[in-house]
């Protein structure tokens, strides 16, 4: 429940996934965009993850449906992550790649996917940390563009803490400086 107010978590749940309904359901045809009332058995439609989760785990009897594993967790990506996790362009696949993965694994039994994600996350972690040490000076933009939202947060946190220790080391903490707003005002004047 700690995710309840986490905006990234909410955004991650908005990812569309493909579902196949095994039984006709009256009153749900609007999901498909159709005019009919009944959602026919065997329809394969894109619905947001949060909706799929509620449908499958509904307290008054779950809807019989099958959730397909999205392409970005498919064999091709898995092999890519296994081979060299740091070069895979995650935001292109899914902006909340790992966060959505964590949600997805909660309704789908796929231990292999969990392993792949965990290993990929760890493999990328060290490179991400190396980039935080550079203080944002070196040419890191190319790598940063391949990070998913979770990793970007991590990068920011790491960058800030290493920058603050660096600043302390350079004795620049005690020095009194003009506030940024004043400098800006002077520039504009």
């Amino acid at each position: 429940m700690e995710d309840y107010y986490d905006i990234d978590s909410i955004l991650a749940e908005d990812q569309n996934i493909k579902c196949v309904f095994h039984r006709s359901i009256p009153g749900l045809a609007w999901l498909e965009g159709g005019q009919d009332d009944v959602l026919k058995a065997g329809s394969r439609i894109d619905i947001p993850f949060w909706l799929a989760r509620e449908l499958i785990g509904h307290p008054q009897g779950s809807v019989e449906m099958e959730i397909e594993t999205p392409d970005f967790y498919g064999t091709k990506v898995r092999n890519g992550l296994r081979a060299e996790a740091t070069v895979v362009d995650l935001p292109k696949l899914c902006p909340h790649f790992f966060r959505f993965g964590a949600h997805f694994l909660q309704i789908i039994e796929d231990p292999k996917l969990g392993e792949v994600l965990e290993k990929a996350f760890k493999d990328r972690l060290q490179t991400t940390m190396d980039h935080t040490q550079s203080g944002g000076m070196s040419n890191t933009t190319e790598y940063l563009q391949r990070l998913d939202e979770t990793e970007r947060e991590l990068y920011k946190a790491g960058l800030e803490s290493s920058a603050s220790v660096h600043q302390w080391n350079q004795h620049s903490f005690g020095r009194i400086r003009s506030a940024g707003e004043v400098l800006l005002k002077r520039k504009l004047a």
Binding site: F98, R99, L105, E109, G114, L117, K122, L154, A157, E160
Partner: peptide
């Protein structure tokens, strides 16, 4: 900050 966040995300990826 880096380790705690990373740790927390790793926990989440566990089945």
């Amino acid at each position: 900050p880096f380790f705690t966040k990373a740790f927390y995300e790793l926990q989440k990826l566990k089945p």
